[in-house]
């Protein structure tokens, strides 16, 4: 029973969500809208569970004085401060502390992480340049052509390179993207089918 009921729920929910695509009737739309709401509500309970796991893992680290346990204290402090800042008597989402933590800690770290991409992409490009295989060379050449398209110092070479880059982006690129997209589409449908029909159930747990 412990296995059959979940599989039955998967089947019912899956078949309904797939079929509602073909049923414009308001009954179907009604259930569809509520199903989406349920997913959102389940999400917040799952988040509570996840935050609990976070607290437990950090707390255990601190308790057994594991390597680098002081950092777990910092994380927990950050978490509790933020939750406290967002409580109703602090003003909820409009709380001063909550918004300032967001602007002065989260935003700068976030944009710096994003900016780090530039360095990482440089080292990735270096890695690509050392590539020895033929396929990697093809990748590299295409990358070079597209990068040079933006280069104003190419003189008379600029025009043909820009045209080649545009051609690559408009034809081979589009062709490959379409082929990949179709493959992904079929892969998604096949995976979803296997899940709904219970052929793939590794995620469902045992006992």
């Amino acid at each position: 029973m412990r296995k059959e009921i979940p599989q039955f729920i998967v089947l019912i929910a899956g078949v309904f969500m797939a079929m509602q695509f073909f049923v414009p009737h308001s009954y179907s739309q009604f259930l569809y809208r509520y199903a989406l709401d349920w997913l959102i509500i389940i999400g917040i309970f799952a988040l509570a569970l996840a935050v609990w796991s976070f607290i437990r893992v950090s707390y255990e680290k601190i308790q057994r004085k594991a390597d680098n346990w002081p950092y777990a204290v910092v994380s927990l402090a950050g978490l509790f401060t933020m939750v406290f800042a967002g409580l109703w008597f602090m003003g909820g989402l409009e709380s001063y502390l909550y918004r300032h933590f967001f602007s002065f800690i989260m935003i700068p770290i976030q944009s710096t992480m994003y900016a780090l991409l530039a360095f990482f992409i440089a080292s990735a490009a270096y890695r690509a340049f050392r590539a020895r295989s033929l396929l990697a060379t093809v990748l590299l050449l295409a990358a070079l052509v597209v990068m040079l398209r933006f280069n104003p110092f190419l003189g008379p070479l600029g025009e043909p390179i820009a045209r080649l880059a545009d051609w690559i982006l408009n034809y081979p690129n589009l062709a490959a993207k379409r082929a990949i997209a179709m493959g992904i589409g079929l892969g998604i449908v096949a995976t979803a089918l296997k899940v709904i029909l219970g052929i793939e159930r590794g995620y469902m747990g045992k006992d």
Partner: peptide, 30 residues
């Protein structure tokens, strides 16, 4: 083990929903 019920709902509903959207956008339209 009761927690598998909501999980089953999430996985099933998602699979059904996206099966159709991606079939249309990635296979039919392409």
């Amino acid at each position: 083990w009761l927690s598998r019920w909501p999980l089953a709902f999430v996985v099933g509903a998602t699979a059904g929903l996206y099966m159709m959207t991606f079939f249309v956008s990635n296979a039919m339209r392409q």
